[in-house]
Design a binder for these strands. Structure first.
Lengths: 105, 105
DNA sequence: AAAGAATATTCCTGTCAAGGAATACTCTTT
DNA sequence: AAAGAGTATTCCTTGACAGGAATATTCTTT
């Protein structure tokens, strides 16, 4: 089953923004905060959540922390979606057959 | 950008369970509640959230409400992931070049 | 019409997560 | 050594959300 920590980490708008920003490459906390108009502490906090969810990893360079995306959680999401790709073409609903089942009670 | 209502709807474990259950076909509220060992009211509440997020749709048959998955949100998720598929093969990190940028300040 | 089944809604309570403000920590520069 | 830049952490307050219990609503059966 899909891991809900990944989902809830991404469900927060600011964190989703961070992820979208990092899609273009690794960035420093300060830069992230600037670009998204966040105060630095909030940026750090959100990054911490993303870090603990494994969505992001960090590399320390002197004073700065450079954050970048990790591919794994996205692959997981992708794999999870796989079990739905089948269904969404042939329609999820096999409604008619379910209605028949109901009749038989 | 990805819609966070989809993500937060799926981020709740019981709701994710419901979605996984519905993957196999449409189901009645009572059945969902039974299978997931939820009390009926909580099942209804979670289904309401999924409904408002457009993850699920419902068809009334007499007394019962049959819920089934809608493909759209999953497609959206899939499309969104697309912008990451590129990156996660070539590595997200173009770390070296970013480090060079930092030098130039 | 009354009783019962299936589902939705309301009210209450407790928990948790997010933002603000202040501060601590670490590394660099002078 | 002192000052400053970059980042993390803590404390506080507030709002959102999930579960429990009770009740309302709608349809069916007798």
């Amino acid at each position: 089953m899909m891991d809900t920590t990944t989902l809830s980490a991404l469900a927060e708008p600011n964190r989703l923004h961070i992820v979208e920003l990092l899609r273009e490459g690794p960035l420093t906390v300060g830069v992230i905060a600037d670009r998204l108009r966040l105060r630095q502490p909030q940026a750090s906090k959100h990054l911490r959540v993303l870090l603990e969810a494994g969505i992001v990893e960090l590399q320390a360079v002197a004073n700065r922390r450079i954050y970048k995306l990790r591919p794994e959680p996205f692959k997981e999401l992708d794999d999870w979606l796989d079990s739905y790709r089948r269904g969404w073409n042939e329609r999820f609903d096999d409604l008619d057959s379910y209605l028949s089942e109901l009749q038989q009670e």
